[in-house]
Design a protein around this nucleic acid. Structure first.
Lengths: 332, 332
DNA sequence: GATCCCCAGTCATACGTATTACTCGACCCG
DNA sequence: CGGGTCGAGTAATACGTATGACTGGGGATC
């Protein structure tokens, strides 16, 4: 029970000795030629004095818009999505929009479980790293998909993960590697399928190329197990290509457990370039994905969509970052 | 220009052949003894058929509540705050509340820069890791502070960081360490002041105890520099106590640069127990802070506050997690 | 001096919902 | 058979804002 209720535009009107309409005109900035500068000033003073803040609910109702956008991500606990939010929020704020986050893990059934139920006050949706079909339930709402691959009709912003993976594979091949192990994230997302396909294509085109695949969850322990399996065969790979920086950390642990030195005995690569990549020792060769830029570009596209434009889908290139975890294989 | 407008309760009323009031009564669940079951069913059917969703803005205006809470954190790019959000959102969803995130870095001047300007549609504020005085501007709004120390009158939920730090210091002292280096986060937050004071108190009470302090930003490179400075003195510390797991990663790098083995030549401890702690080699001895629980407890308190209760402030204990980065000092 | 126009505002209304106060018919009871 | 009661639903209203339609008065124009 909030005993104290905030002042309304009517209160401001009374304080300034004008009508509510005038207050609304002045504070809305639409008063050029309709209200005298003196009156405008006195209205603004009154508003200031009372600490007036327009009631958003009333404004939304009147305008039929909420100036709020929903950002849907699988989770905020993974280090990757924080920057996506940051980039999106920055662009949104510049246009007077707010951002609501909703996490929607793969295993949840739908909006009923998420805060989405109470979040219908939304102008558009920015969905990151989602299966395309989740948007089927929101056809009514303008949407842009991020990091989700070609979308069925909706504008998208994606990373050039295939190019990134080709860069990694090329880098390793150039160092002389031929036997690759792919420590692959067992997650049904477009980005991981694209990475796997690109790697397979490069290795297939390589004379004497061999590729083994070990699947794991995106956590250190699971990745370590998968890497151990890959490394314990008869002719083990000389390079482990990991789908993710965190997975690469697991590969490091596997190498250490087997007494292998990185990179002398085994090259390891990651993907994404999160903080972890430079915290590891040796520092990780990986592909930097501009996560913050993804959020920013996605929000730009969505705001364009809300204004009736039809934004073009975009692809943001990743950048190969060579650090200390890759070297020529020992046996030439 | 959304050409298609969503159906309203009036449309549902027409479809079902009743009045708008009846629709509202039925869908609001307040119809026991006021509407016949048959009519109620037909209303629900009509709503289903039209895909009716109540307009949140209108509802908010009418009820004077938004069922939305603002979570204010310094940044989402740090791995720590994702789980805080997750915990808060889980509890909120269970009560039909949504959560809006606003990042408010130390260096921003105020709400004008943040999405906050357009986010006045808020019932309460959950502010994490903030200087207490930022809430001065929102006295009107019910608030709970997280991880911010004793708050001036507002309910708080904090970690027992002092106890946590005492556990770390006690653990190291028990191993025989006497000369400590504190790699301290140069961030003006309550939690870091509390950590520093607790460590200093323990060392001061230790016969022959010595404590050197090196300040750094919360990133690997800066932490490495600070650790190097601490280790290059005449009688260097045998244990580095770091304010943060990420800082500990910097300490690892410093140790490696100097040819010191962790933990044989140098013990290192972290704080928080984020993912990184187990990704490092050797795995890090640290204090686990239940971040998700912080968000959950904070939200519980805030929702209580909104219902007129006066929730008690709480302290969540941290837990010492001993891993492989600490051992007895070499020179006994 | 009458007409027109424009400046500076105000009036009235609509947005979609929740809820209070009311109506109307049927049934029950004496 | 009349009055009371109850069940089932409706009419009316308020929440606070933004805006198109309107008004009144003071020049300017001829």
């Amino acid at each position: 029970m909030p005993a104290i209720s905030r002042p309304t535009s009517k209160d401001v009107a009374q304080e300034a000795g004008v009508s509510q309409s005038t207050v609304s005109l002045v504070l809305g900035g639409k008063w050029s030629g309709r209200v005298s500068p003196a009156t405008a000033r006195s209205v603004r003073d009154a508003a200031e004095r009372l600490g007036y803040r327009p009631n958003q609910a009333a404004r939304n109702l009147r305008l039929g818009t909420t100036r709020t956008v929903l950002l849907m991500v699988p989770t905020l606990s993974a280090p990757f999505f924080g920057p996506v939010y940051t980039g999106a929020a920055r662009v949104a704020a510049r246009h007077g929009f707010g951002v609501v986050v909703s996490t929607w893990p793969d295993d949840a059934e739908g909006p009923a479980d998420s805060p989405f139920g109470s979040e219908e006050a939304i102008d558009g949706i920015l969905a990151s790293s989602m299966p395309v079909d989740v948007l089927g339930r929101f056809r009514e709402t303008p949407a842009v998909m991020l990091d989700s691959g070609p979308g069925g009709g909706v504008p998208t912003v994606d990373f050039g993960v295939a190019d990134g993976m080709r860069a990694i594979a090329g880098h390793l091949a150039g160092l002389g590697h031929r036997r690759f192990g792919h420590v692959a994230a067992a997650v049904d997302q477009w980005t991981f399928r694209a990475r796997a396909e690109a790697l397979a294509a490069v290795v297939a085109g390589l004379p004497g190329g061999a590729l083994a695949r070990g699947a794991c969850a995106i956590d250190v322990a699971s990745a370590k197990d998968a890497a151990l399996r890959l490394l314990s065969g008869p002719r083990p790979p000389t390079a482990l290509v990991c789908d993710d920086d965190l997975i690469a950390a697991g590969a490091y642990k596997a190498a250490r457990a087997l007494g292998l030195d990185v990179p002398a005995d085994l090259s390891v690569t990651g993907f994404d370039d999160v903080l972890l990549a430079t915290a590891l020792e040796p520092e990780l060769t990986t592909v930097r994905l501009p996560a913050e830029e993804l959020g920013a570009q996605g929000m730009t596209a969505l705001l364009g969509l809300l204004e009736g434009r039809r934004p073009a889908s975009r692809v943001l290139p990743g950048e190969l970052v060579v650090r200390a975890s890759t070297a020529a294989p020992r046996s030439g």
